[in-house]
Design a protein around this nucleic acid. Structure first.
Length: 618
DNA sequence: GCCT
DNA sequence: CAGTACG
DNA sequence: AGGCCGCTACTG
């Protein structure tokens, strides 16, 4: 937590931005509870340096706008408290239009050197780490005709408007490398503008949303009010009935009705919506939050490797939520409205959205000890506890473990085939392993079935291991187990398909077998040991087993948690009802079996719309 | 971490 | 029993 | 404040 902060803040109070904005800045920032001050990013990242922003409306009362202002200042902008000729950019709320701005400024036209941009401009610039061309269509403000406003501006002189009002020369001279070259960005930023719901209004200027009327009226009222009030007073007038921001709040929300929809729906449905198993996986379409998700994923991995399973889970759930959210989440408030995202994660999401990185993560990654722990934890048979012991014992490499540490047989195999077990298995090879098992089994008894589950059944292009469900019509577990243990496994070992046994079911009890398998031959995968799991399933438990072995894990847990809230329980053997639970959800009675055989029926009874395996990715 |  | 692994 | 999946299954 020392790096990024130190450059600017270590030796004193946060730097003041400018005389004109410092007062309001401090005031604005003072209201924030948690992140209590604006901290400038390191000098070389201040893409807005020497730029002077005027917002419309120019108050930070609205949370989302306040955030935009704060972020702009963090990245070097000066916030002009009142409009003047030195302003380089006017950042207008998306509910505003050019006509309203002119009316408020009491002007007939905007000076050509001033760039009028929509509210998403600062964030986009920050995302791309440079000043973007204000004339890009996604920054267009309603009613502002670019061709008319900046008439014969051709590429050569296009960016001059930004230079017209540079900050003091001294500042500019010190940063010749500042990337103000708009021409380098001919193509608009890839995905954001089209996927960002906020851009919708620009595409439908003829049909402005109904809600904008409220904001429009509010802005007019605010404009009238401000005409008689010194601008600096605005922020102080907390006593003033803030009619403008109250009802207008909803307007600034992304247009998507997700939250609104949830509000309208019945209470029960709203409640169920919190379970990830209720939402189908929309991952096939590119998600606007991919960047945020990537960072959060790394955070989840970090917490996983430091043994914080609950934070890890929280991050994973939040990721799942973001993955299914149709629009890019920019602000804390926006994120907070989503399920499984609370205040802390919402703040992080905001930081990531605006900066594409998370300081917290940069720090965490730097710890070299974690790298070793991470390595050790990927050894089959070693978890957090064992890996921590090894780290504390001073071991730093796998070779060292083999030499000096006491290893269980499984851990030894895990180390010897560390690379094998941690490499992905192409879908075609998963199929080969499944076929090998099926072929051998059919030779024993053609009535047996082998179903490859896991990520393969979910349609994955590659998998981490091979999951085989072994079952047989009208057959109980003991018989299946006997055939597998007495005939199948020995046979597959003899064929040198199975190479190791990592966890075997006992002869008179149990249902799963873990080991390693290997395809002989001349393919590229020859000699690579793969983790293979066999699940022995009696025919009347096949449905529940399919759910279990298909996953994914988050989906399963969500489903099981949902069952428990409905007085039922779900495990790999079946769905049970009338379960009596004590304190917490402690189970006091078995309940009665509802369904175990039919996968779809289990979904039905739980009230979850059927989802094929490929849609069970949470 | 989030939620009740 | 704790630890690990499985989805 | 306390739960967060499974009275999962297997190992040592």
């Amino acid at each position: 937590m020392s790096r990024a902060d130190s450059s600017d803040t270590a030796k004193g109070p946060p730097p003041l931005v400018t005389t004109s904005s410092s007062a309001v800045t401090k005031k604005a920032v003072g209201k924030r509870k948690r992140d209590s001050e604006i901290r400038l990013v390191p000098d070389d990242q201040r893409i807005f340096k020497s730029q002077r922003f005027y917002f419309f409306p120019n108050s930070d009362k609205h949370p989302a706008r306040k955030l935009r202002i704060a972020k702009a200042i963090e990245f070097g902008a000066t916030w002009e408290s009142e409009f003047n000729e030195s302003v380089t950019h006017i950042v207008a709320d998306k509910s505003m239009d050019y006509g309203l701005l002119l009316k408020y400024l009491k002007k007939d036209a905007l000076p050509p050197h001033i760039a009028l941009v929509s509210e998403n401009y600062p964030a986009e610039c920050i995302t791309f780490c440079r000043l973007l061309d204000p004339r890009q269509p996604q920054f267009k403000v309603r009613g502002y005709d670019l061709s008319a406003a900046a008439p014969p501006i051709s590429s050569a002189s296009s960016d001059r408007s930004l230079k017209l009002k540079p900050a003091p020369d001294s500042v500019r001279a010190r940063q010749p490398e500042t990337p103000v070259q708009d021409d380098r960005v001919p193509e608009s930023p890839p995905t954001v503008s089209t996927e960002d719901g906020e851009g919708e209004e620009d595409r439908n200027p003829s049909a402005p949303p109904i809600e904008s009327t409220a904001e429009f009226d509010a802005a007019l009222k605010q404009a009238r009010d401000l005409r008689h009030v010194p601008l600096d007073m605005e922020e102080d007038s907390g006593s003033r009935p803030t009619s403008s921001d109250g009802p207008a709040t909803d307007d600034e929300r992304p247009p998507a009705g997700s939250e609104l929809d949830r509000r309208k729906k019945g209470k029960a449905q709203n409640y169920q919506a919190k379970f990830q198993c209720m939402h189908k996986h929309t991952g096939s379409d590119e998600n606007p939050n991919v960047g945020t998700i990537a960072i959060l994923q790394q955070m989840a991995e970090y917490y996983n490797q430091v043994g914080d399973e609950w934070r890890t889970r929280a991050y994973r759930k939040a990721i799942s939520t973001l993955r299914n959210h149709p629009t890019k989440v920019w602000t804390r408030e926006e994120a907070l409205a989503l399920p499984q995202i609370g205040g802390r994660l919402a703040s992080k999401i905001e930081e990531i959205a605006y900066t594409n990185r998370l300081r917290r993560l940069d720090n965490a990654k730097a710890e070299p000890q974690d790298q070793v722990l991470q390595t050790f934890m990927q050894v089959y048979g070693a978890g957090f506890a064992q890996a921590s012991k090894w780290v504390n014992a001073g071991y730093t490499t796998l070779d060292e473990l083999v030499e000096k540490a006491e290893l269980t047989p499984n851990q030894r195999i895990g180390i010897d085939h560390y690379a094998d077990f941690n490499s992905r298995i192409p879908r075609a090879e998963v199929e080969q392993h499944g076929n090998a098992v099926r072929k051998a089994l059919h030779k024993i008894d053609p009535a047996f079935d082998v179903i490859v589950g896991g990520s393969y059944r979910r349609g994955a292009k590659d998998s981490g291991d091979i999951d085989c469900i072994i079952t047989r019509p009208n057959t109980d577990l003991p018989h299946i187990r006997q055939v597998v243990l007495d005939q199948l496994v020995p046979k597959l070992f003899a064929k040198r398909f199975l190479m190791a046994e990592l966890a075997a079911t006992s002869r008179d009890d149990g249902s799963k077998w873990h080991g390693a398998s290997c395809i002989a031959g001349s393919s590229s995968s020859t000699g690579i040991w793969r983790r293979i799991d066999l699940l022995l399933v009696p025919s009347d438990e096949l449905g529940a087993a399919l759910i279990y072995f298909t996953g994914n894990d988050i989906f399963n847990r969500s489903l099981r948690l949902l069952a428990s809230t409905k007085g039922m329980r779900l495990n790999q053997r079946g769905l049970y009802k009338d379960v009596i639970r004590g304190k917490g959800r402690e189970k006091l009675s078995e309940g009665t079996l509802v369904e175990g055989r039919d996968e779809k029926r289990i979904f039905e009874v739980l009230g979850v719309p059927w989802r094929p395996p490929e849609h069970r990715i949470c």
